Amino acid sequence: MSGPSASAMRDYLELVRAPAVLTVLGDTLAGGAAAGHPVGGRRLALPLASACLYAGGMALNDYADRGIDAVERPERPVPSGRISPERALGAAAALTVLGLGLSAVGGGRRSLAVGAPLAAAIWSYDLAAKRHPVPAALTMGVCRALDVLMGTGTADLRSALPAAAAMGGHTVAVTALSRGEVNGTDTTTAAGAAATTALVSASVLAGAPRSWRGALPVLAAVGVYAARCAPAQVEAARDPAARNALEATKRGIRAMVPLQAALAFRHGSTAAGLAVAAVDVLGKVLRARSARGTNREMSES
Rank of each mutant, 00 (worst) to 15 (best):
Ser111Asn: 03
Met298Asn: 14
Gly106Glu: 08
His267Tyr: 12
Ala20Pro: 05
Gly153Val: 10
Ala59Gln: 10
Ser301Gly: 15
Val281Gln: 10
Leu157Ser: 04
Leu177Cys: 00
Leu118Gln: 08
Met167Asn: 09
Ala94Glu: 09
Ala242Gln: 05
Glu72Ile: 13
Leu246Asn: 05
Val148Leu: 03
Ala272Glu: 02
Ala129Glu: 07
Ala64Glu: 13
Ala94His: 13
Leu95Ala: 02
Ala262Ser: 10
Ala206His: 10
His267Phe: 08
Gly99Ile: 15
Gly31Phe: 01
Gly67Ile: 05
Cys143Asn: 06
Ile83Phe: 06
Ala155His: 08
Pro162Gln: 04
Val257Glu: 02
Gly207Cys: 01
Arg76Asp: 00
Glu297Tyr: 12
Leu112Gln: 06
Thr175Ser: 02
Ser124Tyr: 14
Ala173Val: 05
Ser7Met: 11
Ser124Phe: 13
Asp65His: 08
Ala104Pro: 07
Leu282Asn: 07
Thr23Trp: 06
Ala137Phe: 01
Ala121Gln: 00
Gly57Ile: 08
Arg243Ile: 06
Pro38Tyr: 04
Gly283Ser: 08
Arg66Thr: 02
Ala136Cys: 15
Met1His: 14
Arg82Phe: 03
Pro258Tyr: 03
Thr185Lys: 06
Leu146Thr: 14
Glu72Ala: 12
Pro47His: 11
Gly101Ala: 09
Gly101His: 09
Ile122Cys: 04
Ala93Thr: 10
Ala30Glu: 02
Ala248Phe: 03
Ala20Lys: 05
Glu297Ser: 13
Trp123Pro: 13
Gly32Glu: 01
Pro47Val: 08
Leu48Val: 12
Ser7Thr: 11
Val114Thr: 07
Ala272Cys: 08
Ala6Asp: 13
Gly90Leu: 09
Ala272Gly: 05
Ser84Trp: 10
Leu259Glu: 01
Ala59Phe: 12
Cys52Glu: 00
Ala70Val: 04
Cys143Val: 15
Ala160Asn: 05
Thr187Gln: 12
Thr187Asp: 01
Asp186Asn: 14
Leu274Ala: 15
Arg251Asn: 06
Pro258Leu: 09
Ser290Met: 10
Ala94Arg: 10
Ser84Leu: 11
Ala163Val: 15
Tyr54Arg: 12
Pro135Glu: 03
Pro217Cys: 04
Gly81Arg: 00
Glu75Ala: 13
Arg296Ala: 15
Ala30Met: 06
Glu297Cys: 15
Pro162Leu: 04
Pro85Ala: 09
Ala55Arg: 10
Gly99Leu: 15
